[in-house]
Design a binder for these strands. Structure first.
Length: 685
DNA sequence: CGTGGAACGGTCTAGACAGCATGTC
DNA sequence: CTAGACCGTTCCACG
């Protein structure tokens, strides 16, 4: 009989002699006993290894596992690691929103790495898939308390355990104050530790004084944190500086880069193409000095550029909004938290201790730094009190966020649609098994369930026959599309309109009014163009949400009318990352609208499909066929079209010379495009 | 009367998950 | 509730 250590050595470390940390050993012993575990230790303490062990152990017995992450980027990271580990032993699939893996991946792979929403979505189709899964890994499970996305994890967990009571749960978490409570809910053995492989030294900055974690002054800082950053850099460390707005992140990055001595750093850093992207230009300029900023206004390409160059050490300082606090593993010798407050819902407030801990957890690179350093900047006595609270009381308890009508509504529809709950009583029982009920008492979600089933019946999502709740067509489609019932309602209401009223602008406006679209913030400068837009679509905004939806619709309209990125950035004061995220969610909702139309307003289905594709590519409809050629995007397609190449077949018939002569087309590119265009002609005719 | 600059008031603010087909009396 | 930077305008002291 192989011991746990043997298995890890043989299968994971390929025979290398590795000693495990105490919390890893304890967890592995529990896993060997077939029990579920909740591992609560600080970040960067080798928690994933515990999950990998459970997965390997299951695979060895021919059993399947699912690894659930809170973020796509994290899922990719774990997927790569698991694939490397599993080589020759088990197969691994990555399933996240923008990847088309199909609903049958559970049958085809041994291990599935996915986001919690993806797993939830699979469950909307068929909850029984949990029967085929022996090990369920829930990474970063402290996110279960997250206001918007926590309940997804909670529902997933609840369902999995009802469907498959034997499922072995490996829950990994940052330090949890109420670990025993969560562990009890999960029926898992709690393994807790404060162990950090790289020790963390905490400091506080207050009025030009540098203090230790007992608020004793150990140094003075004449030039604020710039002096501190310089010191860390000359000492060979890297710095992550957290701020609370994008503008501040950018400003600090600029200021720091101006103070940097270029000779300190090799100028070997690559440059990313700018394409008129304002952020790319700035990042290129300051990255040469080893500095960059990071926030959601950056598109994926620039973000990856910053992350990769920080990992390789070419970038020494990143100034960041909370984007980097969670998410991919990007440690630095020193973390500086400059802002402890954040503005939201009309006023400024302190961020949670949990969030501060997440940022602190980035300090110290395993294998590179013998310790990590965390500096918390306090501008006021209030901030000092906040830090004292953090040091003395630690993180807040993790509390279920299920108690909101919108969330209960979304999940209730799913439970009815997939036949998991067929009566009101079974819904009550289900919600009594949630973390919310375990924290607030059984029956505490009953009122919500009553309300939302009323809503769902009223608007035709479900029907009641005696005791039996059954999803109507609208309900099933909605649950399978993974859209909010309110979104479906807005779309179906839109189908009532006459054909001639349905301009693209109006459709986009309706789409942006759905709760599944994250709208843009409206500025004073937007009022004028917004009122013009509302005139054009003959609507009058009733509140700020309508204004925000209008602004977002305007941006999308510009996008599909081929307005250059930099003009959109300028006009709406957004970054290319904002455009990227809006277009992808709009594309999803419009596709969902097309599916709903197929059932409820057939003739709109095709035009909505076309609109979805236009959103994806950012083009007018005349160049849609050109876009499908690899290497041809909105800009090149338009140029081809203007020069007489209106269809792929026009290109297939042409010569390299004729195309390479166009601006922006090299000879190689022309060759490739012609080659692709030819094969396309073959397959489509 | 012209100018520099302090004082004042208005404005603005983080992040990021999801689908798509296909059936039947 | 637990903010703070920025920017344009106003207003006052002073030459």
């Amino acid at each position: 009989m192989e011991t746990s250590m043997d298995i890890i050595k043989n299968y994971y470390f390929s025979g290398k002699n590795v000693s495990l940390y105490e919390h890893q050993k304890k967890s592995i012993d529990e896993i060997d006993e077939g029990r579920s575990v909740l591992v609560s230790v600080p970040t960067a303490s080798g928690k994933s290894l515990i999950a990998y062990y459970a997965i390997i152990r299951a695979a060895k017995q021919g059993l399947k596992s699912m690894y659930i992450c809170p973020l796509k980027a994290l899922a990719r990271e774990k997927f790569d690691e698991l694939r490397a580990i599993g080589k020759g032993m088990f197969t691994v699939a990555l399933s996240v929103g923008d990847l088309d893996a199909g609903t049958d991946i559970i049958n085809r792979f041994d291990v599935i790495v996915c986001t919690s929403e993806k797993a939830d979505s699979l469950m909307h189709h068929n909850p029984d898939y949990f029967n085929d899964i022996a090990v369920l890994v829930l990474d970063e499970i402290h996110n279960i308390g997250d206001q918007t996305r926590g309940p997804t994890l909670e529902i997933l967990c609840t369902t999995a355990r009802i469907v498959n009571p034997d499922i072995q749960i490996i829950a990994l978490s940052a330090t949890l104050q109420n670990a025993p409570q969560i562990g009890e809910w999960l029926d898992a053995t709690v393994v807790r530790s404060d162990f950090r492989p790289v020790p963390l030294k905490k400091f506080v900055i207050f009025r030009d004084k540098l203090m230790d974690d007992e608020f004793q002054q150990i140094d003075s800082l004449k030039k604020d944190i710039y002096e501190l950053i310089r010191k860390i850099l000359y000492d060979g460390g890297q710095v992550l500086l957290f701020l609370n707005t994008r503008k501040r992140a950018e400003k600090f990055a600029m200021d720091i880069s101006e103070q940097m001595d270029e000779r300190m750093f090799p100028s070997s850093i690559d440059i990313i193409s700018e394409d008129g992207d304002r952020n790319a230009e700035v990042v290129n300029r300051i990255a040469k000095k080893g500095v960059a900023f990071h926030h959601a206004g950056l598109n994926t390409r620039i973000r990856t550029f910053v992350e990769e160059n920080f990992k390789s050490g070419r970038i020494k300082v990143i100034t960041s909004t909370p984007t980097l606090a969670a998410g991919i593993n990007l440690p630095a010798r020193a973390v500086i938290i400059r802002d402890l407050t954040r503005f939201s819902d009309g006023y400024s407030s302190y961020i949670s201790n949990m969030e501060i801990e997440q940022m602190l957890g980035r300090a110290g690179r395993p294998k590179y730094d013998d310790h990590g350093e965390a500096y918390i900047y306090c501008p006021s006595q209030g901030a000092i009190d906040k830090v004292k609270d953090l040091f003395e009381n630690g993180v807040e308890p993790v509390v279920s966020a299920m108690g909101k009508e919108k969330i209960v509504r979304f999940n209730t529809l799913a439970l009815i649609s997939n036949h998991f709950c067929t009566t009101l009583d079974s819904l009550y029982t289900f919600f009594d098994s949630t973390l919310y009920a375990s924290q607030n008492g059984k029956g505490t979600l009953k009122d919500y369930v009553d309300q939302v089933t009323g809503y769902l019946e009223n608007y035709g999502f479900i029907e009641t026959k005696g005791q039996i709740l059954k999803a109507e067509k609208l309900g099933t489609i909605t649950a399978n599309l993974y859209i909010d019932p309110e979104t479906a309602k807005i779309i179906v209401d839109m189908f009532e309109e006459n054909e001639e009223e349905m301009s693209v602008a109006r459709i986009l406006y309706n789409i942006c009014k759905t709760p599944d679209i994250f709208t843009l913030f409206v500025n004073r400068d937007d009022y004028e163009s917004l009122s013009a837009f509302f005139d054009e679509i003959s609507e009058s905004p009733e509140d700020e949400d309508d204004m925000a939806a209008g602004k977002t619709a305007m941006l999308l309209l510009d996008w599909i009318n081929e307005v250059p990125i930099y003009e959109i950035e300028e006009k709406y004061s957004v970054g290319s990352g904002d455009i990227e995220s809006r277009k992808s969610s709009a594309e999803w909702i419009v596709m969902a609208a097309s599916r709903l139309a197929a059932e409820f307003r057939r003739e709109l289905s095709y035009p909505l499909d076309v609109l979805s594709l236009r959103l994806k590519e950012g083009v007018r409809d005349d160049i849609m066929s050109l876009i499908s050629i690899p290497g041809v995007g909105r800009v090149r397609a338009r140029r081809l079209y203007e020069n007489g190449f209106k269809k792929p077949s026009d290109i297939a018939k042409s010569t390299v010379q004729n195309i390479a002569i166009l601006r922006g087309f090299s000879k190689t590119l022309a060759e490739n495009i012609i080659k692709s265009a030819k094969t396309m002609g073959d397959s489509s005719e």
